[in-house]
């Protein structure tokens, strides 16, 4: 049997995800999101999900697809609302939203992957983010105690990966993916290219395979651009 991490498809890889679970979903905006896994969750129809993800997609792409099917109970994000359905559900109270600072989000994932129960960060001291949280002073500066996240599954997108689960990300599609890969109780990774063992230089691996439980080669990547900005050739 060995490590047996490779899965043939998104549907095999997403086995075991059920309604009510907490999922981490990688990506920043629409950049570096696990497109195949999200599509699979829509197909599976799992509901009442808590999603930890920096953003919530747009109406017809990314996590917006789950919102449209009313599969999300709660979003934990730093910046949301690029889509109308999200706004409607949030204002009507159907969707619970917890907004937290972006660095706090990243660091709470990191803490989980490093086996630390809490971290201290100055982000949010003196603001409503601090309500109900322990404040401690170190060397004259105040910090909030923030707990490591606890997620049933992490859904991650990488550029290349191998059968041992070693991962390489590409450009800013890296973003939250490496620390979420480290933080999931079960981490599912979709890659653009599943390469043979030995093809990745061990010195160039961003996430070591020990953090990865399942890996599969994704298909039909759309990689939509949210804000296409260009300059004129002179």
């Amino acid at each position: 049997m060995g490590f047996n991490k490779v899965r043939a498809s998104a549907s095999e890889a997403c086995e075991g995800i059920t309604s009510g679970m907490t999922l981490m979903v990688g990506g920043f905006g629409l950049c570096g999101i696990p497109e195949n896994c999200i599509n699979e969750l829509v197909k599976m129809g799992v509901k009442d999900l808590t999603c930890i993800s920096n953003n919530a997609g747009v109406d017809d792409f990314g996590l917006g697809l789950l919102l449209q099917q009313k599969q999300v109970k709660k979003m934990i994000s730093s910046y949301v609302g690029e889509n109308a359905e999200f706004e409607r559900q949030m204002l009507s109270g159907e969707l619970e939203v917890e907004l937290i600072p972006q660095g706090t989000l990243a660091t709470r994932c990191m803490a989980a992957g490093y086996g630390m129960p809490v971290v201290y960060t100055p982000a949010g001291v003196g603001t409503e983010v601090a309500e109900g949280k322990e404040v401690r002073e170190f060397k004259g500066k105040k910090y909030l105690m923030e707990e490591a996240f606890d997620a049933d599954f992490a859904l991650v997108k990488a550029w290349k990966g191998d059968a041992m689960g070693n991962l390489v990300f590409r450009s800013t599609a890296r973003n939250f993916n490496p620390m979420m890969a480290m933080a999931g109780k079960i981490t599912i990774v979709e890659v653009e290219e599943l390469v043979p063992l030995g093809a990745l230089d061990p010195d160039h691996i961003h996430t070591p395979g020990i953090y990865v439980h399942r890996i599969f080669q994704g298909v039909n990547y759309e990689k939509r651009i949210e804000q296409r900005t260009v300059r004129q050739r002179i």
Binding site: S77, S78, Y79, V80, G81, E87, M90, L91, L99, P101, Q102, G103, T104, T121, P122, A123, G124, V125, T127, V129
Partner: peptide, 15 residues
């Protein structure tokens, strides 16, 4: 009004 979130602003100003 619709609240979109603080993004990275709280981290940046705190540090």
């Amino acid at each position: 009004k619709m609240v979109k979130g603080m993004g990275g602003a709280m981290d940046l100003v705190a540090s």
